[in-house]
Simulated assay, not measured.
Amino acid sequence: MALEALKRRRRSDYKFQLEYRTRWSDNDMYHHLNNSIYYFLFDSVVNTYLIKHCSLHPPTSSQIGLVVHSHCDYLAPIEFPAVVDLALRVNKLGKSSVSYEIGVFEHGQEEVKAVGEFVHVFVDRESRKPGMQGMAEELKKGLSEILANKATL
């Protein structure tokens, strides 16, 4: 995706949001959110959505999501103390895989600070291979609720 298009992202481009209050320990030596914290936040917003809206119960689900790709485009720094809004959407929904996009916004500001991509492949817990039927129906249904309009991709 072109960097210029990512810079134009707004909260309204996403269908689910989660608030996070930064901690002093989230900063790096340059006094801004450490790169690794962004990935922690991506994992948190995705799994919060899966648990609350897709009937996923990680300790007992027969299917689990394995992260097979992730990246982040950092557009502007965030410093402690801050409240960030993590905005989530699905850009692509396949038979067993899903590509999420996460926008990171500082509370009260419309400009996106970072945009990440996170790809899960849902596999059988035991075999670690995708099932013949793909992802569970409830999971796919919940993910389709935040599927981005193809015109906005």
Results as ranks from 00 to 15, higher is better:
residue 13 D to S: 00
residue 90 V to A: 09
residue 44 S to C: 08
residue 136 A to D: 15
residue 122 F to S: 04
residue 33 L to E: 10
residue 46 V to E: 04
residue 39 Y to T: 08
residue 134 G to M: 12
residue 14 Y to W: 03
residue 35 N to R: 02
residue 126 E to G: 06
residue 111 E to P: 07
residue 123 V to T: 12
residue 69 H to S: 05
residue 90 V to W: 08
residue 141 K to F: 01
residue 55 S to W: 01
residue 9 R to Q: 02
residue 131 G to V: 10
residue 68 V to S: 09
residue 6 L to V: 00
residue 21 R to V: 09
residue 137 E to H: 05
residue 89 R to S: 14
residue 126 E to S: 12
residue 116 G to P: 08
residue 35 N to A: 11
residue 25 S to R: 09
residue 7 K to R: 15
residue 105 F to Q: 09
residue 24 W to E: 13
residue 68 V to F: 02
residue 43 D to P: 04
residue 41 L to V: 05
residue 96 S to G: 14
residue 148 A to G: 04
residue 34 N to F: 00
residue 138 E to P: 02
residue 79 E to F: 08
residue 46 V to L: 09
residue 74 Y to I: 10
residue 147 L to P: 00
residue 124 D to W: 11
residue 57 H to R: 10
residue 119 V to I: 14
residue 45 V to Q: 07
residue 65 G to F: 01
residue 26 D to Q: 11
residue 41 L to R: 04
residue 72 C to W: 07
residue 74 Y to F: 15
residue 84 V to M: 04
residue 80 F to I: 13
residue 142 G to D: 10
residue 12 S to F: 02
residue 90 V to L: 04
residue 95 K to N: 15
residue 140 K to S: 12
residue 135 M to S: 07
residue 35 N to H: 13
residue 70 S to G: 00
residue 53 H to G: 09
residue 73 D to H: 12
residue 94 G to K: 13
residue 100 Y to A: 03
residue 102 I to K: 03
residue 123 V to K: 01
residue 121 V to T: 14
residue 66 L to H: 08
residue 122 F to R: 12
residue 105 F to M: 02
residue 35 N to P: 06
residue 125 R to E: 03
